[in-house]
Simulated assay, not measured.
Amino acid sequence: MEPFEPHDFHPEDYPDIDPRYLSPNIVSSAALPPSQSGIPQEAWLPAEWYRESSGSSVIEPNSVTEDNGRTYHGYKEGKYFLPNDAAEQDRLDLHHYSSRIMLQGRLYLAPIQAPKRVLDLATGTGIWPMEFAQEHPDCHVVGTDLSKIQPQHPPANLQFIRDDAEEPWEFGPERFDFIHARYVCTCFDNPKAVMRQAFENLTPGGWVEYCDSTVDVLSMDGSSQGTTLEHWGELMMTGAQTTGRDFRVSRHYKQWLEEIGFIDVVERNMAGVVGPWCKSARLKQMGRVTARALYDNVTGMSYKLFRNAGFTPEQIDEFAARFRADLLNPAIHAYFPV
């Protein structure tokens, strides 16, 4: 996949490189102590990297423990290949935090007005609908997922349901004013069919919003080429193909939405920045959080798909070590296309 061009971005979203990260004598902080790397220590070791788990993760009783020691959903076992345990829940919440930074503190971009019913697909830990329900107390919010790992006592206007979005939707006759789906490129065998169900369950004048990416690791200056980060994305796509899924499916969303019958379809390109290399303080913070989420959880994200691609557990661990070293390399200015 080709990197975005500068004109593809809104000016406020353009990820300019901090000049300090272009110095030819900068080396990876994995190779030298931060004090000798040419980059301020706080840029690579911010305080939040030392945080402990909140301990508030939800254990799903019917989860299945695999040979890597991670737990996965038991409902419709095997349909989804990422874990649902505490470490994965931390990753999902970190990506939620980075997404809010990307959207300048917002939960969504759709121009919704006083919604009464809202649906969040593949809700994960439920953090998005939790915050949406708090911001819209007069709205009834529903979050669905294969794993029941959401808080057991959500706000009164929020309901969590264990559900497979690819099955016929059964939410009753009342439709939704807003349907939200974020980072679902890994989730569905037939994503266009899910999109069509969204259309059929939307009120006239309602909105649907997808915030999604591919797993391509790109850079506008070519610094990601040949790195373990780039190779990771390639291997993830190869592993996904063995399951019949396309991790670049978001490229088709605009066309599919229009084919299904949606109008006023708007596509906005953003950069899911990895690492604190941007000049913008906002994108720098987003990159720190995204890098932290990947650093901690690359093995869990990769395990099943890398096994599909022929890797042994030992090879996965060795690859993850090289991946983490590249994450800490300030000369690599990587991003995911969003």
Score class of each variant (00 low, 15 high):
H7W: 04
H7S: 14
D8H: 15
I17V: 14
I17K: 04
P19H: 02
A30I: 01
A31S: 00
G38Y: 00
E42A: 15
E42G: 05
L45N: 07
E52I: 11
G55Y: 07
S56Y: 04
V58M: 12
S63H: 08
T65D: 02
E66L: 12
Y72I: 11
N84W: 09
L94W: 07
Y97K: 10
M102I: 09
L103A: 12
Q104A: 15
L107Y: 08
L109W: 00
I112P: 02
A114V: 13
P115L: 10
R117G: 09
V118P: 12
T123D: 08
A133S: 07
E135A: 15
H136D: 04
P137D: 07
H140F: 13
D145V: 09
Q150I: 10
P154T: 00
P155K: 05
A156C: 06
A156Q: 05
F160A: 07
F160C: 05
P168R: 03
F171H: 14
H180A: 11
H180C: 06
W207M: 15
E209Q: 13
V217L: 05
S223G: 00
Q225I: 04
H231Q: 12
L235Y: 07
R245D: 08
D246M: 07
L257R: 09
G261W: 12
V266I: 15
A271V: 01
W277S: 02
C278G: 10
K279M: 12
K279G: 12
A281L: 05
Q285A: 03
R288E: 01
R288A: 00
L294M: 03
T299C: 01
M301Y: 01
F306L: 13
R307F: 03
L327F: 02
L328K: 00
N329Y: 07
